[in-house]
């Protein structure tokens, strides 16, 4: 199972508004605009590393919705994109054990 972590130890710099949030990533110097789903995923990872199932549970609770394939795939897509942007990184259970 893949465990997702925030990419760097440097704290993320947030600016929250009603519909969107902006995130300044110190390591890359990039500013990202995120929708509430993206914000919820990253803030959860900021709080604690998690795998896809844990994230789904958390998001379903926060947005008060059911965990279905659609939600899972949305979260999975966001994670892939965040990984590409270097906001998060993944580690496998096996790696953690060694």
């Amino acid at each position: 199972m893949q465990i997702w972590h925030l990419h760097s130890e440097q704290p993320l710099r947030w600016e929250h508004w009603r519909d969107q949030s902006a995130l300044y990533q110190i390591a890359s110097g990039e500013t990202h605009f995120l929708n509430p789903l993206g914000v919820a995923i990253l803030m959860q990872l900021e709080f604690n590393s998690a795998d896809l199932n844990q994230l789904c549970n958390h998001i379903a609770m926060e947005f008060d919705c059911l965990i279905d394939d659609d939600l899972r795939s949305q979260i999975a897509t966001s994670l892939t994109r965040f990984d590409e942007l270097g906001l998060i990184r993944c580690q496998y259970d096996a790696e953690l054990a060694t």
Partner: peptide, 24 residues
Amino acid sequence: PKDRAFMLLATNAFNYEVLGELAF
């Protein structure tokens, strides 16, 4: 809305990227 104002102001600046966190 403020999020839109932020985006328009930042993306339209001459050197937003150069100043990094200060600009943010």
